[in-house]
């Protein structure tokens, strides 16, 4: 097969440039293969984060021709043969070096979400009954591989830099996984509204578009959470009902 040109970001937070590398393309090659080939033969210090190379761990996130992608699941032959393929780091996070970004902020957000709390067991042996139809909804959210591509593409973080105010789609998915868990009894709507900043999401769905696990982030996770927040905090009628019920 033909030689392809890869235009790769090399540098740090302070300075960097796009460098062209020529790579012999083989059948079925993915962008991560090309980066490995560059490492092995041309630039051993090219920084790339990766693990499983099978789309299961979500480590190799970057932007290919400007679109957030897992480089291990992006086929080289998806792009026109005569054009260079540009590979740049995720923009919503500070670059450490080359294609590797500092995603530690995400792990701090994860620590702040009120954790899973199960109701007391249904049976003396400590077990519960959960039926097949009840697990599907939460299982969709539990498919999340924490690649942070949704965080990267979300304009609230990417463009507006609201990292301090907004938890981002990935952790709204996490919160939804807890919230819709049949056993969970924790109340998270105050957290979602105030610290999580769910109101910053203007449901423009870029997160859903980039999700490599095809999680319907906006429709199935964020909007249902927004509705829960409305029920708890915004709906004046329900507030009244709750007040009357209390008396």
């Amino acid at each position: 097969m033909a030689e392809r040109v890869f235009r790769v970001f090399r540098g740090t937070r302070e300075r960097g440039e796009l460098v062209d590398y020529r790579v012999e393309a083989s059948e079925g090659m993915v962008v991560l293969d090309a980066l490995h080939s560059i490492q092995a033969r041309q630039a051993p210090d090219l920084a790339v984060r990766w693990n499983c190379k099978a789309g299961k761990c979500g480590s190799c996130s970057a932007e290919v021709n400007g679109s957030p992608r897992l480089t291990c699941m992006t086929r080289v032959d998806d792009f026109p043969a005569n054009e260079p393929i540009t590979v740049t780091p995720m923009q919503a996070f500070p670059v450490i070096k080359d294609l590797v970004t500092d995603v530690s902020w995400n792990y701090e957000v994860a620590r702040r979400i009120p954790p899973f709390r199960a109701r007391s067991p249904d049976f003396p042996d400590g077990s519960w009954r959960i039926y097949p139809y009840e697990v599907e909804r939460a299982q969709e959210f539990r498919k999340c591989i924490e690649c942070f591509l949704c965080q990267d593409v979300c304009h609230v973080l990417r463009t507006h830099g609201k990292h301090a105010e907004f938890m981002g789609p990935a952790f709204l998915v996490r919160a939804a996984a807890y919230e819709t868990h049949p056993l969970d009894v924790e109340e998270r709507s105050s957290y979602l509204k105030d610290e999580g900043g769910i109101g910053y999401c203007n449901i423009t769905k870029c997160c859903t578009e980039v999700c490599p696990e095809s999680i319907q982030i906006t429709d199935n996770a964020i909007i249902p959470l927004k509705e829960r927040v409305v029920t708890r905090h915004y709906d004046p009628l329900l507030k009244l009902v709750r007040r009357i019920a209390r008396h």
């Binding site: 899973f116 199960a118 009840e134 697990v135």
Partner: peptide
């Protein structure tokens, strides 16, 4: 399961 894992289920839960 008590920590939140959601395994696939049998028909009787």
């Amino acid at each position: 399961e008590a920590w939140g894992a959601l395994f696939d289920r049998t028909a009787d839960g």
